[in-house]
Design a protein around this nucleic acid. Structure first.
Lengths: 200, 200
DNA sequence: CTATACATACCAACTGGTCGGTTTGCAAGA
DNA sequence: TCTTGCAAACCGACCAGTTGGTATGTATAG
């Protein structure tokens, strides 16, 4: 009976998915290995067979669960556009739609980032690599935007990218604390104002 | 010999200060009551005499330690200015100077906010009250700035305040994860660009 | 037969919190 | 001034429960 082992995805993947949700809900330190194995319907033997410890499990959640999601939503759309302002606008609108769930628990990457970056270098480098990829994608898009005449020449792409990534994480963070969708919309409009100020 | 009881401040104050540093280093969930009493040089009896539990202790750290610091640094200077753009610039410069310590561990308020807001309503409301005060102060300053002709009339003060607070928290957060002072400076310049775009 | 993939029972360490008792500060009464 | 009384402040041993982690056993696939 290898039933659910192969039916609901491999055990490893189920562990990763359950751990992702556990850490999302309780944070990494507050997250419990015991709860993970319980709600995944497996045992500690299985978990520690696939992952050497809690930290290692967390690292793989970042690399294999969180990173792909962030890349799909926030990075990929920017890689081929020549109009970063328009594309960022679109991403913002799409994010605002799905914000009902995220509003309560915030961006999983940002949560882990704030909690674990100062405590564990393994987390910090992995998380920062994702933010770095995002910044690089935005910066490159702005360079293309300038070349295409869709962004003012005087704009500093690196500076804009650093500011935009910071603003995005801050927006989800403050909205989570306020638990107020309107605040998220308000800040989004502020970001859009900024983006528009970069037009030629 | 009531020595250090009165010499180094009251026991209650020492607990608050030590707890503040403990939660700052390890987060609230990761913070340990045992470590707090040990490094404060007191006992559990004393701690639980002054505070009814860990949560209650955390609440008082927010209200009595964190809040005054935030108000002094980030809110008070805005309350009397007619030129919010200039004042925010000054605050940014001053914050950038002291960023050496904060760069590693980030803004204590933001840390607690991201960790505890989704988990505990008591934390969430207290923390959000501080951010709300900051937003209100910025908004009011922008209104006065508009009246004084130092800010464009077309600027929406509420929107700008929401965006600026979000950007500020995001900047310290991303800088903490990157552990990179230059990134903080870069994002700060981005914010200053935005602020300048609000001038008449 | 061997290696992988689990399951089970168990561990020391630590968690937040409690509780009976002791010390200390201070005010009132003689 | 000395004594008595009392409450707040504080101590530290102890608690049940949980933590991440391990050692051993077993089933199964190749």
């Amino acid at each position: 009976m290898r039933s659910n082992t192969q039916l609901n995805g491999s055990t490893r993947e189920r562990i990763l998915g359950t751990a992702y949700q556990e850490f999302r809900q309780h944070g990494f330190q507050g997250g419990s290995i015991n709860r993970i194995v319980a709600s995944a319907g497996i045992t500690k033997g299985a978990l520690f067979h696939h992952f050497s410890g809690k930290n290692e499990l967390g690292y793989h959640v970042v690399d294999e669960v969180i990173r792909p999601r962030v890349e799909e939503k926030w990075i990929e759309p920017l890689k081929r556009t020549d109009d970063p302002i328009r594309t960022l606008r679109q991403i913002l609108y799409k994010a605002a739609e799905t914000a009902r769930v995220d509003l309560c628990q915030g961006c999983p990457l940002n949560n882990l980032s704030q909690e674990m970056s100062p405590l564990d270098e393994g987390f910090r480098t992995r998380i920062n690599a994702i933010y770095d990829a995002q910044r690089t994608a935005i910066e490159a898009a702005f360079r293309r935007g300038i070349a295409a005449g869709l962004v003012r020449k005087s704009v500093n792409p690196e500076r804009a990218a650093a500011f935009i990534v910071a603003a995005l994480t801050g927006m989800t963070g403050t909205a989570k604390t306020a638990q107020c969708r309107e605040l998220l919309m308000m800040a989004s409009e502020g970001l859009i104002d900024y983006l528009d100020s970069l037009k030629p």
